[in-house]
Amino acid sequence: MDQLPALSRVFAYLSLLTIGGGMAAFPEMKVLVVDVHHWLTSDQLTHVYSTGQMSPGPNMMMVAEVGQLVSGPLGAVVCALAFFVPTGILTFLVGRLWKRLEHWPWRDSIQKGLGPVAIGLAVGGLITFGKTAITFVNGALFGWITLALGILTFIAVVRTKVNPVWFILGGAAVGFFALR
């Protein structure tokens, strides 16, 4: 219960960093959730973030799972509101301004400039994430299996039109039998 103010502060702040998507905020989330507040271990955060990839809708609703684990259902509500409402209001206001900014020459510059930065931040976040997801710390066998799972999923998603949630569930099945 006493964690609620900290949860709302942390997730409202993190939401402002999600330019282009949630992965951009992952490195900062890891610092705050794991190192600063000790709410979860690094492995737990990776598990929770991965579970978000199986969810319908916005996959960053994984913040509600963090809240649930730290403070129960109230924590889940607080995290979800903190993460989605402030940036939501910002989007609402900018959405209304957008038309009026049509002839503001910097509008295109901002879009053009932030595009590649958003991709770089996401890849940077993915590297941080991948270091705990694909790892040899639990032995070479686990390392190679996780690496193979990552590469095979990458190829399958790029090359096929199958809904990726099946590959994630496939990963769960492989893990269940091979990563004990």
């Binding site: 992965m23 990776t46 598990h47 973030y49 991965s50 579970t51 990839q53 199986m54 595009g115 590649p116 991709i119 996401a122 890849v123 993915l126 994430f129 991948g130 705990t132 997801a133 694909i134 639990n138 686990f142 299996i145 996780t146 690496l147 799972l149 990552g150 590469i151 095979l152 999923t153 990458f154 190829i155 399958a156 998603v157 790029v158 990726p164 590959f167 994630i168 496939g170 990963g171 769960a172 099945a173 492989v174 893990g175 269940f176 039998f177 091979a178 990563l179 004990r180």
Partner: peptide, 26 residues
């Protein structure tokens, strides 16, 4: 064990998502 598999596959999925975005927008 299952979540380790999910995390590894999620890494591949997210990489593929951004690879596709990068290929069309960069």
């Amino acid at each position: 064990a299952a979540l380790r598999g999910v995390a590894a596959a999620a890494t591949g999925l997210i990489a593929a998502t951004w690879f596709k975005i990068g290929k069309t927008s960069l």
